[in-house]
Design a protein around this nucleic acid. Sequence first.
DNA 1: ATCCAGGCGATGG
DNA 2: CCATCGCATGGA
Length: 298
Amino acid sequence: MVKWQDKQSYMEAECPSNYQFDETLVFLKRSNQEMHRVEGRIVYKALKVDGSAILFSVTEENDKLYIHVLKGKADSLTKESITVYVTKWFDLERDVAPFYQLAQQDPYLSKLVQQYSGLRIVGIPDLFEAFVWAIAGQQINLTFAYTLKRRFVEQFGEKLDWEGEAYWLFPEPEDLADCTIEMLRVLQFSSRKAEYILGIAEKMRDGSLQQALRENSYQELKKELLSIRGIGAWTADYVLMKCFRMQNAFPIADAGIHQALKQQLGRKPTLEEIAKLARNWAGWEAYATIYLWRSLNE
DNA sequence: ATCCAGGCGATGG
DNA sequence: CCATCGCATGGA
């Protein structure tokens, strides 16, 4: 349990065990087209609290995390919202000890957990953002996916300026109310993806999607997700992993997973082979996945 | 140039 | 039910 202490002008918390902030930074620095900004070891991020945009920073020193509110009213609601967000974003409340236990015995993971010790899932707490990002990233290279996301955010999101830098808030489904397929085509989304995203935005505007996703078991949630146009097995598991933070979510068809395992096997594994070796990861597939992904950006 | 990207739904057998 | 196809475009 992460306990954030309110220090008036900032907040602080002990890092959980088995956590390395620097691994979070590696992930956050993956693209320079993101909505957050990383400068040195400080992460800057805009967030909407009770209808208004705020900006905060988060950093770490001597196993302590520090959050500062940089812009906006630093009232208790704001502080609470930020700590909740950061806790989910960096997956700080998970007890990962069982995963490390399991991974140390695993032929595919033992080296990776040693090499990237303290890496945790960097999640996508916002549901709409998780959907848009997952759909945008379907079947295209990551660099282009980030370009699409940035264009989307700059077209429909809200901008917050602070000390000469721009910080963007991810759009809400309401911001897409007047958006057409053509408008997304201009940003170079495919027609298909445009349809998927607008369909999801609509289902979220009337609240029906959130309602359908109130189930809490992995199986129930996945079934609901798969019934949505544009959400296949890969996207469902990706969203379950990054937004619902289900540690057993496993996007098994993922090209990155295949590539990472190929480097260890010397050839591309079949789905059956992956399913077989993943039996050893039961319950922790999402964590196995992020360590495999991590091994790719060397 | 060619192949492939953190896939999906539609179509046809 | 499973295999194949079109999408759509940037990176390597």
